[in-house]
Design a protein around this nucleic acid. Structure first.
Length: 923
RNA sequence: GGGCUGGUAGCUCAGCUGGUUAGAGCGCCUGCCUUACAAGCAGGAUGUCGGGGGUUCGAGUCCCUCCCGGCCCA
């Protein structure tokens, strides 16, 4: 027997080996790729591409565990499971990393220059960009590595250009000067989604603005006094009677001495501050709108770094907060600072750099979003995309219906450069797939490409079809891969990128793919234009105390470190067992310890099994380890416990199937756990030990083969082998190792991942065996409890007296050896009369009494019986009350009434017995 | 301000379209090194299902209301 397993499972000893094996042997390449087999139904998923700057965190681990379980499950069900991996170039994040590197060398990107800087980024990417995919390989994620992509690969970049040009030609992309969220640290525009609003304690300043004619003044309220340098008006609400008479007056803007009008506009809220607000169109989005309504000038007073840029002004060159202080001091000196109040405000910060956003008027590229959003909304409304949990569809609609045009340009260097070309001569801008030789207007020969790059999410929004070859050669027909794999089946992701990524993929998918005919040439409808048919949104992994993990709190759990301590399988199982939709996961090390124990349990069950096989062979039994994946019927002589465990396996397979269909990873993993530990190990292995009797073979004697023993051992091996397959999507490493060990080097497939997933129909049911084992379990548990209460020492066997129906008695009689082994029963005697007294107890269909001379602990027994009696009385009262209720009898379904009647009768019986036992206790 | 969501055993969470006496894991208590496993085995204790009201023959489950959390958007 080559299967000499160590006593305890050591994940570190096997995981590396299998992780490398799976990649080396291309186990997870799509079938079409690996065996040119296109008959299998595809199951396709796209990995949410981690940033190249990323390192694996618990969120990735959860995401990948869930996706891997599904990928493996579908693959084992015979589908062509294609899980496409890749990484995102992550514009800002990556650029920041390299800029930091340059800073440490005492230089910066502007000194280095654009081309050299990009070379540096590519170098950086080559060196560090593989960290996360390396970690994925280590985790055994069953992705198709042959399809791995990077969002800046040539083919994907070409697709980005194509998409941009098409949108431009369709009139959906425009360029213009608008107010945008400006990150003064990164010196780029960012989209609304990349801005976080933080409640911050600030001040509300009231400032007096005198009228130009000297007839008085008006007091305005602002949280940003420094922007007054760019004020072009003051507005009051038209309904605000305090100011009605003043509207139309001219104000002399303090410190600047510029004349600005006092206007009426709805934007001014009478209850806010003094009811009068200043208008700075170039530095506030609301003021920008107000300015547009009144055709006001837009005065930019700050540069890209949020320093005042007003040549000649005393504030010129001051950083915005320094300017604020100076301006407040000057206003104070002039007696114009009326009031300073504490005020909580939502400060907009840039998600990446943390810088306070400076709204800024600048030239940017925008995507007109409404036409795309309309189709994206329809796709979900019409049910072409299903969200799980379903309520995320509401969140999606909420956002989509209030969507604004998307600012897609970034003033960065790392990213897809916008395919627009400006003529330095006549100023014409054209958008083109290739660099134009000459200006279309003035024939100038040196067109200059737009320096802005695209928002990272522009390219990732296209991935569901660009990874499958879009646009292809013609640009209008499906590529072979997209014909086969588009739409993808499922997207698994976190809610944090619902808008960033999920919504954009839906918009781009329904926009671009709608133009690509179906493989048979027929026009594509919205139903087949969607990028995926289902979206499963998973939870957030939190720290054990339910706090969000964050670097600043220092409570970040590194999955790799946890894996090293507990093993990948245990960590995966922990996450799966806690992954119930809609609830965040509080990651618990204690729980992980529990699942490490589970892995060890499986390991030891295998050791037990291998030992039995060895013994059987020594006794002359011929054991074939391969039993076949499907067991349609068991031989006539099969003992009941083996019939039972197959029936249970069948039920568990059904439960796991159902649970995984509904993305109930928790229910699926718990079902397997219960089955394997609670039924297979705790009961089946103990019961079957009775059958596994292998006498030593004497020299020259023919082996005696007991058919029941042979069938029991075969059943044991068969159920164990099926359990490994059932478990393998959840614990791929352990199951791969044991499965190969079981087949002793002659496994029927290269990997357990390529075998058939156990289906309920693969195993026979047997109601009689199920009910027989249930009774036997009841009897054994009752006897064990009685023995404990009676104080029978663990090692000592004791006889029992049994009263009950014929079926129970026959069962006990036929299985004395099992009772002996599992409940230390030395002998079974039968009683004609019901049994009562402190040493007796009632189960379902029987009374049992343990014959042991030692006196029972009377007070303890009285307490136990009193409690039980109270419980039974409560149940009985409830049942009586309901059954005495005419309304219940008239309206409740017959099955419920019947069930209750049966239960009432049983409870009544138990109640009288418990009462009798209590009465029989000595005082 | 708008939207979404949660409050069930000491902890983390199940509990499907209302139907019998509310479950699991961990933890806790007691006894066992019973040769697959002490990362184990056996037995046991534990809940005013956030509060209040309502609908119903019947409510942890549906409705209203209040209290306390969380998340997203503005």
């Amino acid at each position: 027997m080559p299967n000499e397993l160590p006593k305890a499972y050591d994940p570190a000893a096997i995981e590396q080996k299998w992780a490398e094996f799976w990649v080396r042997e291309h186990i997870f390449d799509s079938f079409a790729q690996a065996a040119d087999d296109t008959s299998a139904k595809p199951f396709t998923m796209l990995l949410p591409p981690p940033n190249v700057t990323g390192r694996l965190h618990m969120g990735h681990m959860l995401n990948q565990t869930e996706m891997d379980i599904l990928a493996r499950w579908h693959r084992m069900r015979g589908e062509d499971s294609v899980w496409v991996p890749g990484t995102d170039h992550a514009g800002i994040a990556t650029q920041m990393m390299v800029e930091r590197q340059l800073a440490s060398e005492g230089t910066n990107r502007k000194v280095v220059g654009r081309d050299a800087f990009l070379d540096r980024v590519w170098q950086w990417k080559a060196q560090y960009g593989g960290a996360i995919t390396g970690q994925m390989r280590r985790l055994g994620a069953s992705v198709d590595w042959s399809r791995e992509y990077f969002t800046m690969d040539d083919n994907l970049s070409a697709a980005v250009t194509e998409a941009f040009v098409r949108l431009y030609e369709q009139g959906l992309i425009y360029r213009g000067s608008y107010i945008v969220n400006w990150d003064p640290v990164q010196q780029t525009a960012v989209s609304d989604l990349e801005v976080e609003h933080k409640e911050t304690a600030g001040k509300l300043y009231s400032i007096r603005y005198p009228f130009a004619d000297g007839s008085g003044s008006i007091v305005i309220a602002t949280t940003r006094p420094e922007t007054m340098l760019g004020d072009v008006a003051v507005v009051v609400n038209p309904a605000d009677e305090r100011y009605t008479a003043l509207v139309g007056k001219t104000i002399k803007l303090p410190l600047v001495d510029r004349d600005i009008p006092l206007l009426a506009d709805e934007w001014a809220k009478p209850e806010f501050g003094t009811g009068a607000v200043k208008v700075t169109p170039a530095h506030d989005p609301n003021d920008y709108e107000t300015g547009k309504r009144h055709q006001l000038a837009e005065l930019t007073i700050m540069d890209e770094t949020a320093h005042i840029a007003l040549p000649g002004s005393p504030y010129d060159g001051l950083e915005r907060y320094a300017a604020r202080e100076r301006i407040l001091a000057d206003l104070h000196a002039l007696g114009l600072l009326v009031e300073v109040k504490d005020h909580t405000l939502a400060v907009a910060t840039s998600q990446r750099s943390g810088a306070v956003i400076e709204p800024r008027l600048s030239m940017q590229w925008f995507l007109k979003i409404q036409p795309l959003a309309d189709k994206a909304i329809a796709a979900v409304e019409e049910g072409h995309i299903k969200f799980t949990p379903a309520n995320y569809a509401k969140t999606y609609f909420e956002w989509m219906r209030n969507i604004h045009d998307w600012c897609i340009s970034r003033q960065l260097w790392w990213g897809h450069r916008i395919p627009a070309y400006h003529c330095p001569e006549c100023g014409t801008t054209c958008v083109s797939r290739t660099r134009p030789e000459r200006c279309g207007s003035c024939d100038h020969a040196e067109m200059q490409q737009e320096t802005d790059v695209l928002d990272t999410w522009f390219s990732s929004g296209l991935l569901p079809f660009t990874v499958f070859g879009w646009p292809g050669e013609q640009g209008t027909t499906a590529t072979p891969d997209s014909a086969r794999y588009y739409p993808t089946d499922l997207l698994v992701t976190g809610f944090d990128i619902l808008f960033f990524w999920v919504a954009r993929m839906i918009m781009f998918g329904t926009h671009f793919m709608l133009d690509v005919p179906m493989p048979d040439g027929s026009p594509r409808t919205l139903a087949d234009a969607v990028p995926f048919r289902e979206v499963y949104i998973h939870a957030l992994v939190r720290a054990e105390d339910r706090q969000k993990m964050s670097k600043t709190k220092g409570n970040v759990i590194d999955p790799i470190e946890i894996i090293e301590r507990f093993g990948t399988d245990a960590v995966r199982f922990t996450l799966a067992s806690q992954a119930s939709p809609g609830t965040d996961i509080a990651f618990s090390e204690q729980r992980t310890e529990g699942y490490r124990a589970f892995a060890n349990k499986i390991w030891n069950a295998a050791r037990f099994l291998f030992l039995q096989v060895e013994r059987a062979r020594a006794a002359g039994y011929k054991m074939r380890m391969g039993t076949g994946a499907q067991v349609t019927a068991l031989p006539e002589i099969t003992p009941m416990e083996t019939r039972w465990i197959f029936a249970r396996l069948r039920a568990v397979c059904a439960e796991v199937d159902r649970a995984l269909k509904d993305y109930r990873f928790d229910e699926a993993s718990n079902a397997i756990y219960q089955f394997f530990w609670g039924e297979f190990c705790d009961w089946y292995l103990e019961l079957v030990k009775v059958r596994l009797d292998f006498p030593d073979m004497r020299e020259g004697e023919a082996p005696i083969q007991n058919p029941e023993t042979a069938i029991s051992l075969a059943g044991l091996v068969g159920v164990f082998e099926a359990s490994l397959r059932l478990l393998s999507p959840f614990m791929p490493f352990l199951t791969e190792e044991l499965w190969h060990a079981l087949y002793e080097g002659e496994a029927p497939a290269k990997s357990i991942a390529l075998t058939r997933y156990p289906q309920p129909g693969d195993f026979p049911n047997d109601d009689a065996a199920v009910s027989a084992i249930a009774t036997l379990q009841d009897l054994i548990v009752t006897v064990r409890a009685l023995r404990k209460d009676l104080g029978v020492p663990e090692k000592e066997a004791a006889p029992i007296l049994l009263h009950g129906d014929n079926r129970t008695l026959a069962l006990a009689d036929a299985n004395r050896d099992m009772l002996a082994r599992l409940a230390r029963v030395s002998d079974v005697e039968f009683a004609q009369e019901p049994l009562t007294g402190p040493a007796a107890r009632t189960g379902t269909g029987f009374d049992v009494l343990v014959q042991y001379e030692r006196q029972i602990d009377v007070p303890a027994e009285r307490e136990r019986l009193t409690k039980e009696l109270a419980r039974l009385t409560k149940g009985l009262d409830a049942a009586n009350r309901q059954l005495g209720n005419d309304g219940f009898l008239a309206k409740a379904p017959a099955s419920v009434v019947e069930g209750l009647k049966k239960q009432q009768a049983e409870t009544h019986l138990l109640h009288s017995k418990a009462q009798a036992a209590l009465d029989a206790l000595p005082a």
